[in-house]
Write a protein that binds this DNA or RNA. Structure first.
Lengths: 111, 111
DNA sequence: ACTGCTATATAGTAATACGTAATAGTTGGT
DNA sequence: ACCAACTATTACGTATTACTATATAGCAGT
């Protein structure tokens, strides 16, 4: 596919994780699989877990540990109010930045 | 305006600078002003100059120093072939990432 | 036992935007 | 002559973030 999106994912990956968690209670491994399915094929567990640790440290998520019959226990994440606020701010920033970049892209070469 | 876009600008600011240079020969200070006018109000000279140094180091630009009647001499930048290739790759990456993020944003909450 | 899939954790690295300050040329006002 | 304001570049240090690599561990099938 496309090579090395890593720099372009900075600042958006955390927002994607917030969005995925907001849909339904989920856990790191599954979040990684969803990001891969979305098209971000090179995102690995390690990356997602560091984001989840950050979300926890910033008190944006609630956490519940549950057993699994597929392997070791899972840590399920849900957004709390602060997390929902952060997610909304993320989308506002994204709207702004994406619109400006697209504006730059579509502008005629106006000398 | 919006607070702290810095993380979201990582990975796209260099592409914006490439695009701006591709329009017409220009220099650091003017590029900064154009980015500010675009809406990225908090981008400062220091940030743009580090990007320009990087572009030079990666041999994506040609450089010509010219006197100015407004102040110190200016270093004018133009894209070379490698720079144009890099710019095209940037837009391809942007299209990909932006489309995926928007897809995530617009998806119905599909449990 | 071994392999493979599921699942989490973490120490270290690289890349990048930003803060800040120094330097310097030109213009205009006092 | 001096100073402020604007133009213009350079450089050092910092913070944030995604990635690499590795370790640990549960469960299923062979």
């Amino acid at each position: 596919m496309l090579e090395n999106l890593t720099e372009m994912l900075k600042g958006v990956l955390e927002g994607c994780v917030l969005e995925i968690i907001s849909r339904k209670e989920t856990y790191g491994y599954e979040i990684t699989r969803q990001l891969n399915a979305l098209g971000f094929a090179d995102v690995v567990e390690g990356t997602v877990y560091t984001i989840l640790v950050r979300l926890e440290k910033n008190k944006l998520v609630d956490i519940e540990k549950k057993p699994s019959d597929m392997g070791p226990p899972r840590k399920f994440f849900t957004l709390n109010n602060a997390g929902r606020d952060e997610l909304q701010k993320f989308w506002e920033k994204w709207e702004f930045v994406a619109s400006k970049i697209n504006q730059l892209k579509e502008e005629e070469s106006n000398v």
